[in-house]
């Protein structure tokens, strides 16, 4: 529980777009990730906001395949 709470706070970002995308994913998508994907998500959160924005809005594709898959999952879970 506290692990999820810690991640939830790490999803508080400097940009509204990231708050919405990461905040929705940590509530609804994160629990369904495999343990290795969970640690990748944690690593993803360490990237600067501007990099995350480019990835999550689909403007630039990350170079690592695992991150690409994760970014796709987050984009797919974006609530309409």
């Amino acid at each position: 529980m506290s692990e999820l709470a810690r991640l939830r706070w790490k999803c508080r970002r400097g940009m509204l777009e990231l708050d919405l995308l990461l905040g929705a994913f940590v509530e609804h998508g994160y629990q369904r990730l495999e343990p290795t994907q969970r640690s990748q998500f944690e690593r993803l959160l360490d990237y600067p906001d501007t990099v995350l924005l480019e990835w999550l809005l689909g403007r630039i594709q990350p170079t690592e395949r695992e991150i690409v898959q994760l970014v796709d999952k987050i984009r797919a879970s974006a609530a309409t």
Binding site: G14, P48, D49
Partner: peptide, 12 residues
């Protein structure tokens, strides 16, 4: 800072 400093809103 309530969030990590480089996640402040100036970044936007």
């Amino acid at each position: 800072s309530k969030v990590f400093p480089t996640r402040s809103h100036t970044v936007a």
